[in-house]
Design a binder for these strands. Structure first.
Length: 287
DNA sequence: AGGCATGTTACAGG
DNA sequence: ACCTGTAACATGCC
């Protein structure tokens, strides 16, 4: 899925473009996403103004008067803006350059600003949920999340606390959304490379200096990726169908058998499985 | 043909 | 309670 930087990119353009727009129509072509779109979905959102759009971890939140629309993009979910009316969006030719197939367009939000926001999701692991008269922290998906990595609360003290007494490797710690949220398989590998830490290192064995280094590089890598528009491996597109550029800057992700990019290192990038997910690291400079 | 894919959840078992 | 591994979800690409 899109990880934190990709979701942040989507959220930023939504904030600019969908902000203050009214939803004037909704077309549901396929309601079978990860959770089935309920019958009242359209009725609850119709003629409501999008007051603002925010992000929490990998979730996008549309704020309406007295209600929220929560969106998770799963692995392949995309939100795309089109200037055309939804009926013309079905034309295959329209998608040629974008490599987006119309058959995966599941939901159309027709907005008052003459734009149509299309939810496209190949694998349909993404989902929408509507919450009425609730506070954000009453939404179970959000309340169980840990701290945002770009938040100042992610500091040495917090890290020390969460790794204490935990017999878990550092990769799985960073992947655990209830401890620190928004990181996924790409950015964990990349951050640990920058910090020169082996992903299998047990968290309690990390020296204070190493902990500080990990925190610093998590924040660094996320900010860099956001600045480059996120990473597009296969699926990620921003709301205009454009790829991010950060994949060009990967040091380890998907680079197994290649030479370590550190000029001072002659090691080779290895790929191993940790909790059944691919993990990439340099066996020479990541200790 | 089989394995793999930016994610999350449920379950079994240690 | 914590941790790991496995499978599931659905589709496409090597």
């Amino acid at each position: 899925m899109p990880e934190l930087p990709e979701v942040e990119i989507v959220k930023r353009s939504l904030s600019k473009i969908a902000n203050k727009a009214k939803i004037i129509d909704i077309k549901i072509k396929n309601k079978n996403l990860r959770y089935k779109i309920p019958k009242f979905f359209k009725k609850k959102l119709l003629n409501h103004n999008i007051l603002r759009v925010s992000r929490r971890s990998k979730y996008i939140i549309f704020h309406f008067k007295n209600k929220f629309l929560l969106l998770h993009l799963g692995m392949t979910g995309k939100l795309l803006f089109f200037k055309k009316k939804y009926t013309t969006i079905f034309k295959t030719s329209f998608y040629h350059d974008l490599n987006i197939l119309p058959k995966h367009n599941h939901i159309f939000f027709i907005l008052s600003n003459n734009l149509t926001l299309v939810y496209n999701d190949v694998r349909r692991f993404g989902f929408f949920k509507i919450y009425e008269n609730k506070k954000l922290n009453e939404i179970s998906f959000l309340s169980k999340l840990g701290v945002e990595p770009l938040n100042k609360k992610i500091n040495y003290k917090y890290f020390k606390k969460i790794i204490k007494n935990r017999k878990k490797n550092i990769k799985n710690i960073l992947m655990d959304q209830t401890l620190i949220c928004g990181l996924g398989n790409i950015y964990v590998s990349e951050a640990l490379f920058l910090a020169k830490i082996n992903p299998l290192r047990l968290s309690y064995s990390l020296k204070n200096r190493e902990i500080k280094n990990i925190i610093k590089n998590i924040k660094l890598i996320l900010k860099l990726s956001i600045a480059k528009g996120g990473s597009s491996i296969k699926d990620f597109k921003n709301t205009f169908g454009k790829n991010g550029k950060f994949q060009q800057y990967f040091n380890v992700y998907g680079r197994n058998n290649k030479n370590c990019s550190r000029t001072s290192c002659t090691g080779e990038i290895k790929k191993i499985l940790i909790s059944n997910r691919s993990s990439f690291y340099c066996s020479s400079c990541q200790k």
